[in-house]
Computed example of a mutant assay.
Amino acid sequence: MKILSWNVNGIRAVARKGNLQEVFANVQPDVLCLQETKAHPDQLTGTIRHPKGYFSYFSWAEKKGYSGVATFSRDEVPSVRKDFTEPHFGDEGRILITEHPEFLLYNIYFPNGKASKERLGYKMAFYEACLTDAVGQVDSGKNVIICGDVNTAHTELDLSRPKENAKVSGFLPEERAWIDQLIDAGFADTFRIFEKNGGHYSWWDLKSRARDRNVGWRIDYFFVNEALVDRVTAAPILTDIYGSDHCPVCLELR
């Protein structure tokens, strides 16, 4: 099974460029999770809203052109949630939790905390609600996959300039500590199962053409609970796919 996660920075923009269609045609994922879609479903038409061979699920913010996630699955899912068990975090259209035969898939666009102390506080509360929800599902006997734009680089290996960004949201100690907590709770960062070195990123600043110089951050992840680790066969970062300031990340399961 192949699952892709991609912050597209606007689903309509990436479709206009043809990159979204290329992913469906060339990568052929079983499930595609998109973040920062910046669209209500009624703003989408044709194969953007209903790609051939896939069922489509959306969550969106009331504010148009902001946030939003979408999950496209080859198989119809029996249930979808758009919030955590601790409610009110679904208001910004950041959460899609779909039920699949052998796991729950959390497609999450985690908040950015750079705008203000209040937004950083919201981000940390969102983190805690996600962790509580996911651990509760594992404790109940279910497998869980968490994917999306986490908006935090975990360690100094995960961004080009850690010292310069030590006091910037996205690399603050409390943000990084949450990923530690997630791992301590039994979830594995699947990319790090296969790659222990730095220099591998999933987001680059467009204005400075940072991608050309590979000056980036790894802030897009797949986490799986312990029972799924042995089923993970690959977790690459697909840096050859363009169209956004992020590139897709992938999870393959046996």
Rank of each mutant, 00 (worst) to 15 (best):
G65S: 09
Y66S: 03
S67V: 11
S67Q: 03
S67N: 15
S67R: 15
G68S: 03
G68N: 02
G68V: 14
G68T: 11
V69N: 02
A70V: 06
A70E: 06
T71D: 04
T71S: 06
F72W: 08
S73M: 07
R74I: 10
D75W: 12
D75V: 13
V77F: 06
V77T: 15
V77K: 09
P78M: 11
P78Q: 15
S79Q: 15
S79E: 15
K82H: 15
D83L: 11
F84S: 08
T85S: 13
T85N: 13
E86Y: 01
E86D: 08
P87E: 08
H88L: 06
H88P: 00
F89S: 09
F89E: 07
F89L: 05
D91P: 00
E92I: 07
E92R: 13
E92T: 00
G93F: 05
I97R: 12
I97F: 05
T98K: 01
E99N: 09
E99Y: 09
H100L: 13
H100E: 00
P101C: 13
P101L: 06
P101M: 07
E102F: 13
F103N: 09
L104A: 01
L105F: 11
L105S: 06
N107D: 13
N107W: 03
N107A: 09
I108G: 01
I108D: 01
F110S: 07
F110K: 00
P111A: 00
P111H: 11
P111C: 04
N112K: 06
K114F: 01
K114D: 09
A115Q: 13
A115S: 11
A115L: 04
K117W: 01
K117T: 10
K117V: 11
L120N: 01
L120D: 09
